[in-house]
Design a binder for these strands. Structure first.
Length: 468
RNA sequence: GCCCCCGUCGUCUAGCGGUUUAGGACACCUGGUUCUCAUCCAGGAGAUCACCGGUUCAAAUCCGGUCGGGGGUACCA
C-alpha cells in the first residue's frame, strides 16, 4: 500500500459535544488492527463545521481515549510527521489541492446563490434526477465564471452524469451505484472550509492511511470519495464500513434513546476493560467463542474483514454482567484503586475509605457489584429499608436478648452462627428474616462476618435495639 | 419518494452446501452449595434460520422476488 507496508489507521472524530460511544467503537477496531500489524493508529480532529464546534470537546475526546487506554501514535497533542492533525489548521493544504483538482477537471467553482440553488433543485425534474440539476448548475457557472471571479463560490465535485460506480467494501464486497443519482457535492464551502468529503480524502492520502475503518453511514458517499482519489490519481486505502450501534428500537444509537455518551458509562462505574470487551463482541466474535478477553488478546486476533455487517443492539444488561465479571477478576488492590478513582470527587464516600475495614468491605462486595457505583450502597449504607412491623418487633426483642447473652469475649463467628441457627429453629423464623432484623436490609454483605469484623457486638446490639 | 446496506432464540452471536434433533453467551426459570444477597455449580425453557419461489440428490448456507429494519439523500460530520 502506498509505497509502504506499514499499516496506518485512524479515527476522525468531530469536536461537537460529549464523546460518543460509537467513537470508542471505531477507535477500538482501528487501534487493534494497527497494533496487530505493528502499525500506527492516529487521531485526526475533524473540526471543519464551525456551526457545531464545541469548545473543549476535543479535550474530552482525548480524555476518553486515555481512559480506555487506546492511545494513539499521532494526533494534535502528540504530533507526528504528517500533521497538522486538526483540519482547521490545514486550510492552506486544501486550497492547494483545490487548485490541483480544478486543473485535473475533477471539480468546478459554483457561484450560485442560495436562492438560485434552491430554485434549481426544486424544479420537478431535478428533484428526481440530480444530474439535471447539476447540469444546469455547471452550465450557468461556466458562463459566469469569468465575471464572478472575485465573488464567493463553492467548490463542487464533478460526478459523471452516467454509468456505474463500483466501489469495494472489504466487509461486504463490491457495491454498485448509479452515477446519475449522485449529486455534485460541495467540496469546499464559501467560508473556505472543506467539507468532510474533500478533507477525508486529502488527509487520509497525505497521512498515508492504509486502512479506513469507519461507520456505515459513509457507505452512500463512498463513491464520491473514490472519485476524488481517482481524479487525483492516488492509490486508495482499503475501506471497511462497520455497522452502527443501535438502540433497543433498532435506530442508530443516539443520545435521545440510549446511553450514547462515554461520560455516562464512566459515571455509572463501568470499567474500560469491560466496555472494550463488550464493544469487541458487537459484530465480531472470538474464534474460540470466548466472551471475556483482554484487549491484548483481541488485538492479536482482530481483522476488520471478519466484522459482521449487521447493526447490533447495544444491550446494557449484558454489559453489566460483563462489568461484574471484570470486577471479580481484579485483585483486591486493583479493585481498590479503581474504587478510589471512581469516588475521587465524592468527599463523603472517600472519607469512608479511611476505615480500617476497607479492604474487607471491598473483598466482601466484590462478587456483589456489577458497577463500581454499587459499592457505596453495599458497603456504607446502614439505613434501614423500612420500619419493623409489630410482629417483627417482638421477634427483634427476643433476638436482642439472645444476642446480648453472648459475652463480648465470645463474640466470634461460629458462636454467633450457632446462636442464630438455634434462634431460627426455636422461633421458627427464616435466616432471611434474621438478616433483615439485624441489618435492616433485605440483602447485602455476609451477616456474621460483618457482625464480628466490622460492626462489633456493641454496635450490632445498639442498632438492633433501636428498631423496636 | 429515490439510492445503498442488512435480516439465525428477547439481545449479542457460531454456522460459509451434507458432521445440525441449528451451538455458545446475556437475560429468564428450576435445583444444588450457602448465615441474606451475590458468586459458583447443575439443569430447563426459548429460533418452523423474515417470507415466497428457484438451483441441487441435499440449503440457515447459492440465486431471484417480497416484506421488514437501518443508513444516506445538507455550503453536518
Amino acid at each position: 500500500m502506498a509505497g509502504s507496508n506499514l499499516v496506518r489507521t485512524r479515527i476522525a472524530p468531530s469536536p461537537t459535544g460529549s464523546p460518543h460511544i460509537g467513537t470508542l467503537y471505531q477507535a477500538l477496531f482501528n487501534f487493534a488492527f494497527a497494533k496487530k500489524n505493528d502499525g500506527k493508529f492516529l487521531v485526526r480532529i475533524e473540526d471543519t463545521d464551525r456551526e457545531r464546534f464545541v469548545e473543549g470537546a476535543e479535550g474530552k475526546i482525548f480524555e476518553a481515549i486515555d481512559w480506555v487506554s487506546l492511545s494513539e501514535n499521532e494526533s494534535p497533542r502528540k504530533g507526528g510527521d504528517w500533521g497538522p492533525y486538526r483540519q482547521s489548521e490545514r486550510l492552506s493544504i486544501y486550497r492547494e489541492y483545490e487548485k490541483d483538482l480544478l486543473e485535473k477537471g475533477g471539480a468546478y467553482k459554483c457561484f450560485c446563490t442560495k436562492e438560485r440553488l434552491d430554485a434549481l433543485r426544486s424544479s420537478q425534474a431535478a428533484s428526481k434526477q440530480p444530474t439535471i440539476y447539476d447540469e444546469l448548475c455547471r452550465k450557468l457557472n461556466e458562463e459566469e465564471i469569468a465575471k464572478n471571479e472575485s465573488e464567493p463560490y463553492v467548490l463542487r465535485l464533478k460526478v459523471p452524469q452516467e454509468g456505474n460506480l463500483v466501489v469495494r467494501d472489504e466487509i461486504r464486497g463490491d457495491v454498485e451505484f448509479d452515477a446519475s443519482l449522485i449529486e455534485d457535492s460541495v467540496l469546499i464551502k464559501t467560508d473556505g472550509f472543506p467539507t468532510y468529503h474533500f478533507a477525508v480524502v486529502v488527509d487520509d492520502h497525505l497521512m498515508k492511511i492504509t486502512h479506513v475503518i469507519r461507520g456505515e453511514e459513509w457507505l452512500p458517499s463512498y463513491p464520491k470519495h473514490v472519485l476524488i482519489y481517482d481524479y487525483f490519481g492516488w492509490e486508495k486505502p482499503y475501506f471497511y464500513h462497520t455497522p452502527n450501534l443501535r438502540n433497543t428500537d433498532k435506530s442508530k444509537l443516539s443520545k435521545r434513546h440510549g446511553h450514547a455518551s462515554i461520560d455516562w458509562y464512566r459515571q455509572e462505574g463501568f470499567l474500560p476493560e469491560a466496555i472494550l470487551n463488550f464493544l469487541a463482541l458487537m459484530g465480531w466474535s472470538h474464534p474460540e467463542g470466548k466472551e471475556e478477553f483482554y484487549l491484548s488478546e483481541f488485538t492479536k486476533l482482530f481483522d476488520p474483514k471478519d466484522l459482521k455487517p449487521v447493526g447490533p443492539v447495544f444491550d446494557l444488561t449484558k454489559l453489566e454482567w460483563l462489568n461484574g465479571v471484570w470486577i471479580r477478576k481484579f485483585p483486591l488492590t486493583e479493585l481498590k484503586k479503581r474504587l478510589l478513582d471512581f469516588y475521587k470527587n465524592d468527599k463523603e464516600t472517600l472519607e469512608m475509605f479511611k476505615s480500617s475495614h476497607i479492604d474487607l468491605l471491598i473483598g466482601l462486595s466484590q462478587s456483589r457489584m456489577k458497577k463500581l457505583s454499587d459499592f457505596k450502597n453495599l458497603a456504607f449504607n446502614n439505613a434501614s429499608a423500612r420500619d419493623l412491623t409489630t410482629a417483627e418487633m417482638k421477634i427483634a426483642e427476643k433476638l436482642f436478648n439472645t444476642l446480648s447473652n453472648i459475652e463480648h469475649s465470645d463474640w466470634r463467628e461460629e458462636r454467633i452462627l450457632n446462636v442464630l441457627k438455634n434462634f431460627k429453629n426455636t422461633e421458627n423464623v427464616s435466616m432471611k428474616e434474621i438478616y433483615f432484623l439485624i441489618t435492616g436490609r433485605e440483602q447485602g454483605l455476609p451477616l456474621i462476618e460483618t457482625m464480628v469484623k466490622i460492626d462489633g457486638r456493641e454496635q450490632i446490639l445498639e442498632n438492633l435495639k433501636s428498631r423496636f
